[in-house]
C-alpha cells in the first residue's frame, strides 16, 4: 500500500532558504514605536529596558532585528503568494497522510499546524519524534520534513488550514465513502500486521484497548456501517484512515478483529 517515491524526486522549485529564515512582524508583539524606530521618552523602567534596546555591547541589537524583520517581511510576503505552489501536490498528499497516520497517534494535527519553524528546528523535531517511536522510515521522515519546512516556516501566514483540510484539498475525488466495488473478502492473516502497524498504538496489543476503546468483541464489528464510517472518517480523537488504508486493508483489519 505504501507509495514508493524518493524524496529527491520531489521538486520544491520556488522554495528558497530565505523564505523560511525571514520573519514577519506580528501586530501586538512588537510595539509600533519599535517598528517605526521611534525612541520614547525615558520611562521609570528604562534602566531595565536600556541594555536590551541599546546598541552598545551587542553584536545584534533589537533595532537591527526590527529592521531585518521588516525587510524580511517584505520578502516573505512575496514568497507567501505562491506558498501552495511550493509544495508539490503529490508530496503534500503523502506528507499529510503520514501526519495523520504516524503523528496523530500521539497528538492531533493542530499542534503541528501552529508551529512556524526553520528547517533545523523541524529536523530536530522530526528526529525527536522518530526517536520516541514515530513509525516513519527514513524516506518517510524526509518527505515529512520537506513538507513541514515548506509549509510551516517562520514567514508563513499566521493561520493555515488544518492538515485534514490540506488533505481534502489535494485529494483526488474518489468513489464514495462506505461504498466498495462489490463485497471485499478480508484476510485476517494480513489484517494482523496492518493492525499492529496502524491501530495497536491506541487500541492495544490484541485489540484489548488502550487510549482508544477495546475492539476485541466490540459490537462495532457487527455494525458494518458504523465500523466503516469510523475507520474512513474518524471519530472523536481518532483520525480518519480513509486516505491511509485501502478498502482491502480495512476489510483485512476487520477480518482479523473478528477473530479476537
Amino acid at each position: 500500500m505504501r507509495m514508493v517515491q524518493k524524496p529527491s524526486s520531489v521538486v520544491l522549485a520556488s522554495l528558497k532558504p530565505s523564505t523560511y529564515t525571514n520573519r514577519t512582524p506580528r501586530a501586538g508583539t512588537l510595539p509600533a514605536h519599535r517598528l517605526a524606530g521611534v525612541s520614547k521618552p525615558d520611562a521609570p523602567y528604562s534602566s531595565r529596558r536600556a541594555p536590551r534596546c541599546g546598541l552598545v555591547g551587542r553584536t545584534f541589537s533589537p533595532f537591527t532585528i526590527v529592521l531585518l524583520v521588516i525587510l524580511g517581511g517584505v520578502v516573505a510576503t512575496a514568497a507567501q503568494e505562491d506558498e501552495r505552489a511550493t509544495v508539490e501536490p503529490t508530496l503534500a498528499r503523502r506528507a499529510a497522510t503520514l501526519i495523520l497516520a504516524r503523528c496523530a497517534v500521539c497528538h492531533t494535527t493542530d499542534l503541528i499546524v501552529q508551529q512556524r519553524l526553520p528547517e533545523d528546528r523541524w529536523t530536530a523535531t522530526v528526529e525527536k519524534m522518530v526517536h520516541w517511536g514515530a513509525d516513519l522510515t527514513k524516506d518517510e521522515a524526509a518527505v515529512l520534513l520537506q513538507y513541514l519546512t515548506a509549509r510551516y516556516h517562520p514567514g508563513a501566514p499566521d493561520h493555515l488550514p488544518s492538515i485534514e483540510n490540506e488533505l481534502a484539498m489535494t485529494e483526488p475525488l474518489r468513489g464514495q465513502t462506505t461504498a466498495t466495488d462489490g463485497p471485499l473478502t478480508g484476510l485476517a492473516a494480513r489484517g494482523a500486521g496492518l493492525y499492529a502497524h496502524n491501530c495497536q498504538a491506541c487500541h492495544g496489543e490484541g485489540a484489548v484497548g488502550g487510549v482508544g476503546p477495546k475492539l476485541a468483541r466490540n459490537t462495532i464489528l457487527k455494525n458494518d456501517g458504523v465500523f466503516w464510517e469510523t475507520v474512513l472518517h474518524g471519530r472523536g480523537p481518532m483520525p480518519a484512515w480513509g486516505s491511509v488504508l485501502s478498502h482491502q486493508d480495512i476489510a483485512d483489519i476487520h477480518a482479523w478483529l473478528a477473530t479476537r
Partner: peptide
C-alpha cells in the same frame, strides 16, 4: 507565541 524567533511547542 510572543517569542521571536519562534520556538517549537504549544503556541
Amino acid at each position: 507565541a510572543h517569542h521571536r524567533p519562534k520556538v517549537p511547542g504549544v503556541q
